[in-house]
């Protein structure tokens, strides 16, 4: 399937809408209409251009936002679940574990334990080569063997 410039611009409109309203319940038919496309066509072009479905995209955004809030806020897991757009803590936790390998609580505990300052991202959050070269983080022996 070849996507032309006009289709690309249209599907970007819908994607931008999803990005801006990730925490809200949405009807894909409405998003497609916003993009001046049918629902079927929107999904097809979206997957072709971005390599994932609109549902996969919105899940990714929600989980990334949850990861940020888990590290930089003291909000409860329930609050974060709702803030990023999930109504079921069970579904949220399952998806979170699937994406990160950790439960939300484990993720928070692990990242916060690594950070020197409260509610900040630990240096381990960025690739070690950058951490080392840009501000002198020491390489662990296991990293250089």
């Amino acid at each position: 399937m070849t996507v032309n410039h006009t289709q690309y611009k249209k599907v970007c409109l819908g994607r931008d809408y999803l990005t801006q309203h990730y925490a809200l319940a949405f009807d894909l038919a409405d998003v497609a209409t916003y993009s001046c496309m049918s629902k079927y066509h929107f999904c097809r072009v979206f997957s072709e251009v971005f390599g994932e479905s609109p549902y996969q995209y919105i899940s990714k955004i929600r989980i990334e936002r949850a990861k940020e809030l888990l590290v930089t806020s003291q909000r409860s897991i329930n609050d974060i679940c709702e803030l990023v757009g999930y109504t079921s803590i069970g579904s949220f936790s399952v998806l979170f574990r699937k994406k990160t390998g950790l439960s939300p609580t484990q993720y928070r505990t692990k990242l916060q334990a690594l950070a020197n300052d409260p509610l900040t991202h630990p240096i381990q959050s960025i690739p070690m080569c950058y951490a080392h070269r840009l501000f002198g983080a020491k390489l662990e022996k296991s990293n250089i063997e």
């Binding site: 690309y8 970007c12 994607r15 251009v49 971005f50 390599g51 950070a115 020197n116 300052d117 900040t120 991202h121 630990p122 240096i123 959050s125 960025i126 950058y130 951490a131 080392h132 070269r133 840009l134 501000f135 002198g136």
Partner: peptide, 30 residues
């Protein structure tokens, strides 16, 4: 991140797996 370093990356919408790290050259270890 710890130490005040800002880790800032951007990517083209259609290629999320390749990120440009927008880094300011500053005096430091590098």
């Amino acid at each position: 991140v710890d130490g005040g370093f800002r880790w800032l990356t951007v990517f083209a919408k259609a290629q999320p797996d390749l990120e440009l790290v927008l880094a300011e050259p500053k005096e430091g270890p590098m």
